[in-house]
Design a protein around this nucleic acid. Structure first.
Lengths: 175, 175
DNA sequence: GGTGAAACAGTCGCTGA
DNA sequence: TCAGCGACTGTTTCACC
């Protein structure tokens, strides 16, 4: 059965989710500004039942957080770019991690492929990009960078909770 | 809460935001599960005043939406990747846009640089990636792809609303 | 933009399946 | 054990200063 000592807010195992959970997750990922009554109607559950499930999903870490997504241009950051960073040996150095402190940096992933790290950045203008590149090149071990400036964004949505029936197809052996 | 129906959901001008607006945006981008009373205390405004501003910010499109961010692993998608697509001429074809219909595809940007399009995808396993690659290569005009599989994600946060004074003045202060 | 009050939704304990 | 019901509590939201 389930382990009930989930005091720690983060749990990164694939959770056991039934069809109700997946419907709730899909609805909240699309719009978190919904009342439990509205959610309940959509998924076929009473408001308190939905509330209890959402509470569980948050506590177990399936729902990481609920956030307002802002329009980059409106907040003065019309320029989005992906930056590939090539570093010696392996990418994760404490020094490189300091780059994450810039509010312009939204994502930072170590990757397999001919780059050590991929960053997603959003900023005001090319000058800000130039400055950030300077900061990154100043990190010991960094060989080079490649920047890809976004011209148009055709899709930008959060993680989708698929509500297909047979899911999850294969790999979970949990309970 | 209520989801205000947007008559024109997209408006992409830089909005005129004062210090209160920026504080509210920063707070909501970090955690949208706050009462207007709590927000008001943080920014120094009464609950109704905050409510009115949030309403305005949503209606004007500064706040695109409010969503629950899900943990990829928990919903059965532990594999994140960035895909660069090289296409003939220019990347945006109706056929390529169909790729966005897969729930695995979360972002899709046309870019400047030696790629036509960058996709952020999240999926169950390498087989799903292989399938998606097949779909993309089947699109007329696509020359090739390069995939970068994320090994670790060190940072993943929404657009930040900078609350520095005099914003947006000089890009950065030194570190 | 602040204040107070009405309307509403979120929350808790209980009952029944 | 878990979903539904109903009462209480807190938040949202409106009219007015």
């Amino acid at each position: 059965m389930e382990n009930t000592e989930d005091i720690r807010p983060k749990r990164r195992e694939p959770a056991a989710l039934d069809a109700f959970d997946r419907k709730i997750l899909a609805a909240l990922a699309a719009d978190a500004d919904q009342s439990y009554a509205a959610l309940g109607e959509k998924v076929g559950l009473s408001p308190p039942a939905v509330h209890e499930r959402v509470r569980r999903l948050k506590r177990s870490g399936v729902i990481r957080d609920v956030v307002a997504r802002l329009d980059g241009t409106s907040v003065g950051k019309p320029l989005t770019a992906f930056m590939h960073v090539e570093a010696a040996g392996w990418g994760k150095s404490e020094r490189l991690m300091q780059i994450a402190r810039f509010p312009e940096v939204e994502e930072m992933h170590s990757v397999a492929g001919d780059a050590s790290m991929i960053l997603k950045v959003r900023m005001e203008n090319p000058q800000a990009l130039e400055f950030l590149l300077g900061q990154i090149h100043a990190v010991p071990g960094v060989h080079g960078t490649k920047s890809y400036i976004a011209l148009s964004t055709y899709l930008d949505r959060p993680v989708q909770a698929d509500v297909t029936v047979g899911w999850p197809a294969v790999p979970f052996s949990s309970e």
